[in-house]
Design a protein around this nucleic acid. Sequence first.
DNA 1: CCAAATTTGATGTACGTAAATCAAAATCTG
DNA 2: CAGATTTTGATTTACGTACATCAAATTTGG
Lengths: 341, 341
Amino acid sequence: MRPTVHDIAAAAGVSLATVDRVLNQRPGVRHVTREKVEKAIREIGYIRDVAAANLAKGRTYPFVFILPASDNSFMHGLNDEVRAAVARSPVERTDIRTIEVPAFDPAALVRVLEELGRERPSGIALVATDAPEVRDAVDRLVQDGIPVVTLVSDLTGSQRHHYAGVDNIAAGRTAARLLGRFLGGARGEIAVLAGSMLVRDHRERLEGFASVMAAEFPSLSILPVIEGRDDPEMAHMLVADALSKKSGIIGIYSLGAGNRGLIRALKEKAVDRSLTVIAHELTTHTRAALLDGTIDAILNQNAGHEVRSAIRVLKAKADGLAVIEAQERIRLDIFLKDNLP
Amino acid sequence: MRPTVHDIAAAAGVSLATVDRVLNQRPGVRHVTREKVEKAIREIGYIRDVAAANLAKGRTYPFVFILPASDNSFMHGLNDEVRAAVARSPVERTDIRTIEVPAFDPAALVRVLEELGRERPSGIALVATDAPEVRDAVDRLVQDGIPVVTLVSDLTGSQRHHYAGVDNIAAGRTAARLLGRFLGGARGEIAVLAGSMLVRDHRERLEGFASVMAAEFPSLSILPVIEGRDDPEMAHMLVADALSKKSGIIGIYSLGAGNRGLIRALKEKAVDRSLTVIAHELTTHTRAALLDGTIDAILNQNAGHEVRSAIRVLKAKADGLAVIEAQERIRLDIFLKDNLP
DNA sequence: CCAAATTTGATGTACGTAAATCAAAATCTG
DNA sequence: CAGATTTTGATTTACGTACATCAAATTTGG
């Protein structure tokens, strides 16, 4: 049987109450006694039974998720995953609330964060808009002792405790290599469709993409970035326009959302041309496009994993426990038409 | 507060004892009463507090993992992951034992399975060698009510409760598409290195690979499969030999283990040739080869996820609970040099 | 050395469920 | 309808930890 608090008490030659004081860092224990108990804990290899502890505490974790109000499949999916987590709340002892804020609007995000500073939940997860004022607001929360994790998009130079999202520079690099290799040694232009250079994940993807392109595929040149604000309508218009004007385009990297519009433009404009297309985020639309050959590869981040990871990290931080970074690493999925889930 | 057994009792107008009898399917409850209680459970939305239940039961799950005694990095990694799971045993209330059996030896595997049939652990996970006698042994265990999951390699037509591994046909198809597209429209021969056609995962990878190759990349022809028995020495010898004799080889698909030998052969024999190589399993060796350009892509199954998934499934089966198939799906990782973890 | 302050011990209750026991009530059998 | 059988109720203990209370012992300061 695994050792219990009673075993520690016996081993250290103190009472249960003292063991409890040491374990839960309550005051009123002399230094020497505390060390004696800690030694016993180490020696008999005691591990707290978390289930029993939670049961006794009856603790619940009030968490808040701040999500952008974007009308694209990825954000809808993220929303669904948060709702799924809410559904698991009774089992996980979490109490999750979501707040929607306008997308790409640092001021609105800051207002919500300041409001939460007063409310003091056990943890906050946010899809960050990368702006100095947001960073400052997050840093204030962290200074106040509230656990904060960024979700999907990180916050430059902030003190946030953790980032639950993919390595976007690596994602961009991967996209470049796939595109470059799929195109063989062909010569031509590559169009890049992004949401906004205001969000860090898009900037980073572009950065990674451009650096590998420049270093390893010199026969391909990148056109100025098209910013579609993750909006299908806007993306459609801009891409259709680019395809009409530039006949040298042989590849497209769509690093943001709003792929519905991109796909529509491709089907209208590029039936005669054979474009190689790499897009982000697996949705109903990108999936269908991958299967029918409109898109050649999809890079994906699993929203469910991100949300679950964020919750695990927030819990750990709220309890002052360590996070196993390797376990919380979010993988970049690469989907071809053959390995779709 | 979430409802408890007391709330059910009150709602159904019966005693706690009766509720307990219904919840834990103990005998001695009239049909009408049982229905009354079940109705109350549904209506107030009671969910059993698993933590409290496990605490009360003090139950542990004796599980057995049967692993092949193969000297390759992947099996070593799998072993490590099982050991890591053993380390987590006290927390997870599992009691995991591992048994090593000679690789590719159905008879030895059957002997172990029959032995376990007498011992009756709470669950068995095995890396299956795909043979009829193994299938029969597994089916007997299943008939006996012992939960069985296959790990990494599945068992044709058996009654095993679950398979914790990747979709190997999809893996082979993915490898074919990557190789085909990386090679552009080039014409030439593709060598395939496998471990043994005795294990189902290798057969399936080949099947998927060959079908996409035939359908979509007719300019590439597949050479007869080289069987290296997942052994680095043997793989080295066979690949070196093939490279010397066949000058038309422009690509290699290594679908099994023993990649150390393959890489050594490539570095010795193919310095002057530019081969496109796709291999399975991310190990120290394949990782280095990917980074230095000897290998172009690595398909990987995360052994840690497979082991943890197997344990979750065995637990669920042992408790007679449902498995969320979507959650237990093992993803196929695709690594280029840019997205290595 | 005494009083005050600090440290430690002893003990009990709670969390939600499992499981057992024994008594009481209801139902069935002939 | 008596007696046997089945069903139900009431109650208790246990799991391992958290947390609170009060008393006793020890240490500290003056």
